[in-house]
Amino acid sequence: MELPRSLKMFLLEAGDLSAFTGRFFREAFRPRYEWAEFIRQCFRIGYKSLPLIGITGFIMGLVLTMQLRPSLVDYGVEAQLPAMVSLAIIREVGPVITALIFAGKIGSSIGAELGSMKVTEQIDAMEVSGTNPYKYLVVTRVAATTLMLPILVLLSDAISIYGAYLGVNIKANTSWSLFVRQVFEILDFSDVLPAVIKTFFFGFAVGMIGCYKGYNSKKGTEGVGHSANTAVVLSSLMIFILDLIAVQVTDILGLN
């Protein structure tokens, strides 16, 4: 029986992506290590994403609080607002929204950058200049996204909680110390740890898919645009799939 063409293409691409990911583990732990490029990428990917992540995190916390308040008032549990908002932010909203914004900013930029390097033969030029382009371009970027996203998520969570504090104070009057105490009373180590661990996987997926799409870009500017676009779409989808897997795993482990 002949497989439909689209299914065949999907399976071929999945196979290619798996092989590309497997190569990462072969190359990453073998010298030569590209420390300088890795640090440059951490700065570019992590530090330069801070303003965007900070602003969206702040708005996220503020809006979530304002949206939740009426429902909680109806049930007479308005006092639970800080606890509910912080739990939602730390466990789910913070990691997923931050990862999606990260995929939009970094995934597309990696896809476009590597794609244009591919079509203008810069990757070939690296290879003839005594450089392993996979190590120099892919390993450093994937390692940087894997390491930087959890840090960005923690910062975004903190800023979101501050946004939530301001949200609570729009229609109430709660002190910062009381707010923080309420937040830490409800939060447990088992809330924070799985949420942080899954962001490493989100970061890895964003970096790997961006690099894969860019590295295998087809000729021409259209190919570069397509690489950037599919990098964002695929990594956003992968974030949700990984989130689904993470919630099942934490459920099995009794961490929910």
């Binding site: 244009s116 390097m117 033969e121 810069q122 070939d124 030029a125």
Partner: peptide, 13 residues
Amino acid sequence: QIGFLFQSNALYD
């Protein structure tokens, strides 16, 4: 020992 001049120059942007 072998220099290579690329058609698209391949200068790193």
